[in-house]
Design a protein around this nucleic acid. Structure first.
Lengths: 216, 216
DNA sequence: GAGCCCATCGGCCGAACGGCTGATCCTAGA
DNA sequence: TCTAGGATCAGCCGTTCGGCCGATGGGCTC
């Protein structure tokens, strides 16, 4: 059973490099190699590869956005996604994992790691670059605030006030008037809420509020 | 039992005019007269008048926004609000009623009508300018699309696709990628959804989706 | 064939949103 | 007393949102 792989990277050389490495494996076949996020989505839809190898930096849609579309929460039949990037910034890592990625590789990893990551993803396992794994483990043993990761930190009463109003569709200006504070304050609270819930926008706050019963 | 009234209008002359008319009534008392929406909210909170007389055009927060804060859906102990305006544009009327107003008056109405509108509002009834009432009745007998009024018009399948994704917090760009269409198309669908559901922003779409069970 | 609805797309533009930095005030606790 | 966290606020800035205009093509109905 060959593993069918889609490659998405805006750099031609990287694409062909990956393709050659993977095609050299007897159990792998690259079924598509595209240069931007939009193509990645459409080709992945069309071909339904076993594993998608996505670069983070891409035109139109970046790798994380593509991941959310293909494997994010709420997607049916989510696909296996491995994120490959030059940078190991924490935000990328946590963002990728939250978006639904099953693997995270640095481009300075050896070809062996790339192959193993694809194989792991195809099997439903996850392979993350060792240098990154270290930090993930640190995070587990010494949990601390990290960009993009939902923090198990309860919302304050005031933040809940903001959540309730936002979930009802109020604008920041209206929330400010309703809570009797300035626009700046509302935005500050919103920033804290984003960080604590690990969400990206006010609609996700609303969804969380409805799901958790904060509003009904 | 005197009816305590708050007046909010950015024009000094209008404020004092209204105040004199109402104060001349034995059963009425103007407890505040403010010049902008923010003051209207804070004074209404502080004094809890029986009726708020709000102009639509006001600095900081307009009359409809103030209405939503004081009497909108989801507000506890909603206050009685009468909207007063120079213009009888349909959008204003429907917007005011949707925002929670219990009355709608034109500034060219006679003082008698103003007094009766306040009295009606205090009693929980609604008085709308006769010239506007005509159109409201027309709308009941010959329902047709009108700006700002929720239309009992089912969403199309495609629009529901957009709703489901938006309710999960996806951006327009992500919805476009996920549905395999352009950003423009998503925005067009969103416009239709806004009109059909009678909502103002994507968070209200999300709230509707959760309430109606379109997502869960 | 004419009319209508739906889905699709593009461009323009102002308003709203969200990120970021940095600041003050107050209270509770070490 | 010093510290930490919460609530408040201000400004800057780039992105997204939403409104508004118009346009095309397909399918259905009268």
């Amino acid at each position: 059973m060959t593993i069918r792989v889609l490659i998405a990277d805006d750099q031609q050389l990287v694409r062909t490099g990956f393709q050659m490495i993977l095609d050299a494996q007897p159990d792998m076949e690259v079924v598509a190699a595209v240069a931007d996020g939009a193509d990645a989505v459409s080709e992945a839809r069309r071909l339904r590869p076993d594993v998608c190898l996505l670069d983070i930096r891409m035109p139109k849609l970046d790798g994380l956005e593509v991941t959310r579309v293909l494997a994010g929460p709420g997607v049916e039949n989510p696909m296996r996604v491995v994120i490959v990037t030059t940078f190991d910034l924490d935000e990328y890592v946590y963002g990728a994992l939250r978006s639904g990625a099953t693997g995270f590789l640095l481009k300075d990893s050896g070809p062996t790691l790339l192959i193993e990551a694809v194989r792991a993803a195809a099997a439903g396992d996850a392979l993350v670059s060792p240098s990154i794994t270290v930090r993930l483990l640190q995070h587990l043993t010494h949990p601390r605030r990290t960009a993009g990761l939902p923090v198990n930190d309860p919302l304050t009463d005031r933040e809940l006030d903001v959540v309730r109003l936002v979930a009802r569709g109020r604008s920041n200006q209206e929330v400010a008037a309703e809570l009797f504070v300035s626009l700046s304050t509302v935005k500050t609270h919103l920033g804290s809420i984003f960080a604590k819930l690990g969400v990206r926008n006010r609609v996700e706050i609303a969804a969380w509020a409805w799901e958790s019963g904060v509003v009904s």
